[in-house]
Design a protein around this nucleic acid. Structure first.
Lengths: 205, 205
DNA sequence: AACTTGTGTTTCTTATAGGAAACTTTTCGC
DNA sequence: GCGAAAAGTTTCCTATAAGAAACACAAGTT
């Protein structure tokens, strides 16, 4: 079976300016992201505030762009930034998986929630999933905002609850509803149904 | 009340080369990370493979370092990369939230899964949550590995299934079980129960 | 085929990043 | 306090990033 993208000629013929391993990756990813948006060099350059010639050189790894330029591109192209730094080293979760059976998570108790931390064996993972049972059943029990840098996703597994976010109106939620939010904003929830409300949270950063 | 850090003199006296707002952030974060390690400019520079003068200028925002240099520093100083891109501008999810009611996600159909993408309005978010109904009910229907750079978390919402991962043994899973894995490894699943299996996936990168 | 239009690439030039070394400041010792 | 050593800053120079414009190469159009 042929593997055309492993063609040694085209491999060696590209005069890649990057000396560090994996660095040549950058251009490829940026080009992919641009094409995914269906943009031309001109359009993408304009969106990011850089010239199309510069962008061309970046995509072809003919230059070492400044961090500033790269950041503007990530913003315009909505690139996921961490993968730009990936350096195929042994430090991330490469080739690993971690299973947690139902109810077997690592318990963590607070006055307002009962958390069950999931997949805690994989310490170098970047997302933090946990299932929480909400104890608060009344707005008066709701002490203060939770607030921590990063982003968060929440899915209601069972029960009914009201989700509070700073600057927003209270949000009644039921099984299957989900919300994604800046966890730097104050947030928290109280159970409003008869049974316990259970939610899955996935936190990043 | 005095606000010493708003002193107009010291404000205007720092000749911050960065024109884009928040860009001056970078130097501060790098300096913090270096001091946290208790390193001198010399030591940190050596660890990252750059000169101490260069590092000094970066920390004082007297230069726009290349992406390559920044990446070397993040590695040496074990910096969390996404926060380097934070641009307290209107484009990330700062101060925002996005709700998806049960069943109201953005549908996406494939031969093996029916995906429902969640919270798609928040385009600049970094995690990608979606609920999938698994169509494959038989190993023979299982075509090929899914494989994409990044990390992934999966929680079984309902039904029974077998989760396959390259290099690992097949994993029977039931409601409430979860798994976190390197999604660069081939992976996929088939439903093994009577009803449809439903899972939540959260993908990063 | 020649003309047009739109997209990506390659000069060419200028501004500047990055490193070596000179210089300044701080932190010790006594 | 004064010197010595160490840490940080600034200067200087060279290599090069970034943009403008010229160039190349398509895909339509007549």
């Amino acid at each position: 079976m042929e593997r055309p993208d492993m063609d040694p000629v085209s491999q060696s013929s590209e005069d890649d300016i990057t000396n560090t391993p994996d660095a040549g990756h950058l251009g490829k990813m940026i080009r992919e992201a641009r094409l995914k948006k269906g943009w031309t060099l001109e359009e993408a350059g304009k969106a990011a505030g850089i010239g199309r010639s510069t962008l061309s050189k970046i995509e072809n790894n003919q230059t070492r762009p400044s961090f500033d330029i790269v950041r503007r591109l990530t913003k315009a192209l909505e690139l996921k930034t961490p993968q730009l730094f990936v350096q195929s080293g042994p430090s991330d979760i490469s080739g690993r998986r971690d299973v947690t059976l139902a109810g077997q998570g690592e318990p963590q108790d607070t006055p307002t929630y009962f958390h069950e931390l999931l997949c805690t064996e994989l310490t170098s993972k970047r997302m933090f999933p946990y299932i929480s049972t909400i104890k608060a059943r009344d707005v008066s029990e709701f002490e203060s905002w939770i607030r921590h840098r990063g982003e968060e996703f929440m899915l209601v597994i069972s029960g009914e609850l009201t989700f509070f976010t700073e600057h927003y109106k209270p949000l009644p939620m039921r099984e299957g509803d989900s919300v994604y939010y800046d966890s730097g904003m104050g947030h928290g929830c109280v159970s409003t149904g008869k049974e316990d409300a259970k939610v899955l949270w996935v936190s990043l950063e």
